[in-house]
């Protein structure tokens, strides 16, 4: 286990390093950083001051060392927009995203697993056909499009739900519903396929020969075996939600990391952009470890 965690941590450290190098050199080599950090109409003098202040006239390698040194002390610089440490701004937004992702993923996983398992139990039946049809459509739907169609329908025409922002519980419904659809479709498909395999496996035959009732056969005997491929997809989708709620968040004006990213990019708040990427990368790293632990818990044959 320790060896595995070390390997995992090393891989993540390497990827963070690659990320840092990439971000640093992209931001330094593709143009003058003053253009990145300062407003377009800043004076020449202001630019020179900025350069001196941030040591931009030093050799690149010195700048890089300083940059990494700052990152190691968790200093991502200050947000220009909010005049606060960038990390604080990001963590505040991250809490929103995490809550949104967590609620959605719990709902999605539960619904997809139950419906997928039931569909697999009755392959070719009416329920299976309906579930397959809707999951295929769900898996094919672009979330930004669903989001704006939902706004037109439920907020503008029917006036049932708020169009954007936060504040009440009602504000959570549309973002969660929209984020729900695609992962639900994808995960249901995987659950169904994996459960069909599990339900036709020899150990299920044994369970039936023992006189086990259908429901425990599905949910006790087959499900735990069929969950392994499902866990992988759930992990992928959760990772996608941690960084990919960008679209839904910005459409619904939801103050999460995704919206923060887009706003910061548009307003040249580069320190925040960087901090957001680092925080998300770290969260994905933690989640991948959780996924691996889930594997080992579900399947005693897997030991790290």
């Amino acid at each position: 286990m320790r060896k595995f965690l070390t390997r995992r941590a090393v891989a993540s450290a390497v990827s963070l390093l690659v990320l840092i190098v990439m971000v640093f050199f992209l931001s330094r080599l593709t143009g003058d950083p003053t253009q990145l950090y300062l407003p377009v109409d800043a004076s020449l003098e202001a630019r020179e001051n900025f350069r001196n202040l941030h040591g931009l006239n030093d050799p690149l390698i010195v700048q890089f060392g300083r940059y990494v040194g700052d990152l190691l002390t968790l200093d991502f610089g200050d947000s220009i927009r909010k005049s606060r440490p960038a990390l604080d701004v990001v963590i505040e937004a991250f809490k929103w995203t995490l809550t949104l992702a967590l609620i959605t993923m719990v709902l999605v996983s539960f619904a997809a697993i139950v419906f997928g398992a039931l569909a697999a139990f009755n392959v070719g039946g009416v329920f299976d056909r309906i579930a397959t049809f809707f999951s295929l459509i769900g898996a094919s739907a672009p979330d930004f499009w669903i989001a704006i169609v939902a706004i037109v329908l439920f907020s503008v025409n029917l006036g049932w739900l708020p169009t954007s922002g936060t504040g009440t519980l009602w504000h959570w419904i549309l973002p969660i519903a929209v984020l729900f659809i695609r992962p639900f479709g994808l995960i249901l498909q995987v659950v169904r396929g994996s459960m069909i395999t599990a339900l036709s496996s020899p150990y299920v035959k044994t369970a039936r020969a023992k006189g086990v009732r259908p429901r425990p056969v599905i949910f006790v005997h087959a499900l735990r075996n069929g969950m392994l491929p499902v866990i992988t997809v759930i992990g992928d989708q959760a990772a996608g939600m941690l960084n990919g709620a960008v679209v839904v968040e910005s459409i619904f004006g939801f103050p999460g990391v995704g919206k923060l990213m887009i706003d910061s990019i548009l307003q040249r708040d580069f320190a925040v952009v960087l901090a957001a990427i680092m925080v998300t990368a770290f969260a994905i790293f933690l989640m991948n470890i959780l996924i691996d632990i889930a594997y080992a818990v579900l399947d005693p044959r897997i030991r790290y």
């Binding site: 990827s15 963070l16 931001s27 960084n243 990391v257 952009v273 994905i284």
Partner: peptide, 22 residues
């Protein structure tokens, strides 16, 4: 390991920032 590295990037965020800078 290369795959691990790419997988641990927040891909869409990364795309956003890369496309912003390039």
């Amino acid at each position: 390991r290369l795959a691990d590295v790419i997988m641990s990037f927040p891909s869409l965020l990364l795309a956003v920032i890369v496309l912003y800078m390039l």
